[in-house]
Design a protein around this nucleic acid. Structure first.
Lengths: 104, 104
DNA sequence: CACATCGTTAACGTCGTTGTTAATCTTTGC
DNA sequence: GCAAAGATTAACAACGACGTTAACGATGTG
């Protein structure tokens, strides 16, 4: 949970996540997409790997390429925590909820 | 979105969120709960406020107290983004999904 | 009014993170 | 074998985040 949110805190890493939503991509292609040097992005990918958000698999044809793919678990865990937090409002159905909505 | 995840990246701030799930609390009570000096927590609360995750309302009885409460919007926005990311797996119902599941 | 209490801001030192260039390793192609 | 390409690690400088103590403003209490 800590590693997950720390990884997602960086805009570059979130952009990588968004790029990987469209399918697995090699590291170099990601670096080009975020306008950043390969070493810089490599460390971002390291953070994402450490948090378990992505996984690197060997590219079939060219063994030099490392194809990165999204992993499911951390996102599911984060969503579970979010559901717990949002229960705060679900449980408040009476005057307090009205109060909150008025204030917003 | 950026301010939201940056705010949630810190463990102390997440603990504050979890404490506020049980109801509004004054700043001092929160500082004591996380074992931290009042100024340190005050800056954490500032970050949470800037991200719109919490809101401070004047305590009715004692005007010195600032009661902090959770706000809904950022959590809803984060959940919407998470849903988009998780669509990555929902859309993969064929052999690729099997491949991913096998790998995990 | 004098004094304590709650909360925030200011100033300071410290540690972690981010990006760049240079060097390393593996794999590919001639 | 040798040079080029993909990716990572190493070393470095720069910037920001975090916590502490000290100082400040605002509100309650005698």
């Amino acid at each position: 949970m800590d590693a997950t949110l720390a990884a997602l805190a960086d805009p570059t890493r979130r952009k990588v996540i968004d790029l990987l939503r469209e399918g697995p991509r090699p590291a170099g292609e990601l670096a080009q997409a975020v306008q950043m040097s390969a070493p810089a992005l490599s460390r971002h990918l390291r953070v994402l790997r450490a948090g378990g958000l992505v996984r690197a698999e060997a590219g079939g044809a060219d063994a030099r390429l490392r194809l990165y793919t999204l992993r499911q678990e951390p996102f599911a865990a984060l969503q579970a925590w979010l559901d717990q937090v949002q229960a705060f409002w679900a449980e408040q159905l009476g005057s307090f909820k009205d109060h909150v909505e008025r204030r917003q």
